[in-house]
């Protein structure tokens, strides 16, 4: 009898050890993919990044050399456009959700924001095309900026809302008790108290849209030269990576690796900075 139970217990302990080890293996396996990606990109991209990459225009296929200066500037312009449109809208919508919204309406808007956030980026691209490119008969940086702003608005709104709600009740009540009206409390106490978190969520949002490719494919399109107006097809780093990686030219692949390294570097730096700003232990918006 006792040998039977101890045999059973031995099996239970063995299962325990095996399964717990397996979960650890899962965790380290998943995390290691990040290092795999990083090291491979640094290895291949590092060989290809040069000063030319940042200062020269792309060359015709077959020619060695050239760079992606126009795509770097183009990405900056498109992201700036998206931020100018998306960040204020998201910010004020977030304030409404956190401070002024009635319960039911707040739920509806919150749910819609999550819905908008969940729309596949390629679908956002289609809509930006039908709204801006089609009527104007012109691919443009403007259309690309509009598409990316559609993705930035819900992220900013939900992030702003979350960090406003994390401001302690007592600070709100203190300001109100001193006789300040609600709008003044929000503007001079609550928003300043939450500014780090709000900035974090804005940086994360901008970092997220800066890597987006699908919404730009048929809005900003691409360009092998400098774009001189917002109403022209405009090159961007993500689209360049796509077109160069899928083209059959050796030297273009080299350029794609360089662009990949630069893009991922920027995105990761933005992410790490954003998370460093926010104090430890604060949860980030999902």
């Amino acid at each position: 009898m006792s040998t039977k139970t101890s045999a059973r217990n031995q099996r239970r302990n063995a299962v325990n050890n095996v399964m717990l080890t397996l979960t650890a293996v899962c965790a380290f396996l998943t995390v290691s993919t990040l290092f795999l990606i990083l090291s491979y990109l640094v290895y291949n991209g590092g060989k290809s990044v040069s000063l030319d990459f940042f200062t020269k225009l792309p060359l015709a296929p077959g020619q060695e050399g050239g760079g992606m200066a126009n795509a770097i500037l183009g990405s900056a312009v498109i992201i700036l456009l998206a931020s100018v449109i998306g960040l204020p809208i998201g910010f004020f919508a977030g304030i409404y959700l956190a401070e002024f919204s009635p319960k039911k309406l707040g739920f509806v808007i919150r749910y819609t924001a999550d819905l908008l956030n969940g729309i596949p980026s390629i679908v956002i691209g289609i809509v930006a095309w039908t709204v801006i490119v089609k009527p104007l008969h012109q691919f443009s940086a403007l259309a690309g900026g509009f598409a990316l702003s559609l993705m930035l608005i819900p992220i900013t709104a939900r992030g702003t809302e979350q960090f406003l709600l994390e401001v302690p009740r007592t600070m709100r009540e203190g300001a109100l008790a001193l006789g300040a009206p609600m709008w003044l409390t929000v503007a001079s106490v609550i928003v300043p108290a939450a500014r780090k978190g709000i900035m974090t969520s804005m940086i994360l949002g901008v970092a997220r849209i800066s890597g987006e490719t699908a919404p730009l494919l048929f809005t900003a399109l691409g360009n092998n030269f400098w774009s001189t107006s917002l109403n022209q097809p405009t090159a961007s780093l993500p689209v360049m990576i796509f077109t160069h990686a899928t083209a059959p030219y050796e030297d273009w692949h080299r350029q794609a690796w360089a662009a990949g390294l630069v893009l991922l570097g920027l995105v990761l730096i933005a992410n790490i900075t954003a998370r460093a700003i926010v104090s430890r232990g604060a949860s980030l918006p999902k």
């Binding site: 990040l34 990109l41 291949n44 990576i241 995105v267």
Partner: peptide, 24 residues
Amino acid sequence: SLTFLVELLAAVPSVIFGLLAIFT
């Protein structure tokens, strides 16, 4: 710290995954 790394992985742009996938 592991969760932080996993969240960084979530921030890697889709086109970068594609780039790595094509060549590796």
